[in-house]
Design a protein around this nucleic acid. Structure first.
Lengths: 98, 98
DNA sequence: AGTTAAACTTTGCAACACAAAGTGAGGTGA
DNA sequence: TCACCTCACTTTGTGTTGCAAAGTTTAACT
């Protein structure tokens, strides 16, 4: 039926799935905004973001404006991976709703 | 935006998600059929099924026909939980595709 | 009795999520 | 200038769990 092995383990985790979903809705997000949306500790959030960055899905941009501010955005690779992941979700929903 | 905490951890795992999706498409499945669809070791499959059973999502029926044969099916609770899970997936897809 | 297959159980390990606490850089207020 | 605060991050520790591999049990079939 489906090849569940194709599910991207990097994305398929509650925390990172939340991050990826948020990142896909805007060009970029600040650390604080992400933190505000996701009930996660600093450390946990940073770790997930670093994980996504190490997998090439997310860019990290450090700026010092008023306060230090780091912004995160999807790379093309990340956007593609997320799109592929969504395609599998769509198939699951389709099968499950039938 | 979304409450990602609401994602059911029992279902949101590659292996069990595969099982739940398959179970939702037919009244019942034999162990062998599940094993045929999912690239998983016996032990791993049994463990996931037991997990789902212990959470009240799946019934286990043991029969001895030609050979011993165990069949698995969704409970009402399991069907509801899976439906709720799919609803969240739909929201993610919708947000991610926007 | 010996073999084979189904459906487990057990064991062991590596990975990982997560919390909590600590760090350091760079403001801001007194 | 000194204390304090926030942001972003690191470190540490703990508990959970996914997973493979090997062993076990039960029952049929020869």
């Amino acid at each position: 039926m489906f090849d569940f092995e194709k599910i991207d383990k990097v994305i398929h985790e509650k925390g990172r799935l939340g991050i990826m979903t948020l990142l896909s809705t805007r060009p970029s997000w600040s650390f604080q905004d992400l933190k505000g949306e996701l009930a996660m500790s600093d450390g946990n959030l940073v770790t997930h973001l670093r994980n996504l960055h190490e997998n090439g899905y997310v860019t990290i941009t450090k700026e010092i404006l008023d306060r230090p501010q780091t912004t995160y955005a999807l790379t093309d690779k990340g956007r593609t991976a997320f799109s592929d992941y969504l395609t599998i979700l769509e198939q699951i929903v389709k099968a499950g709703r039938s």
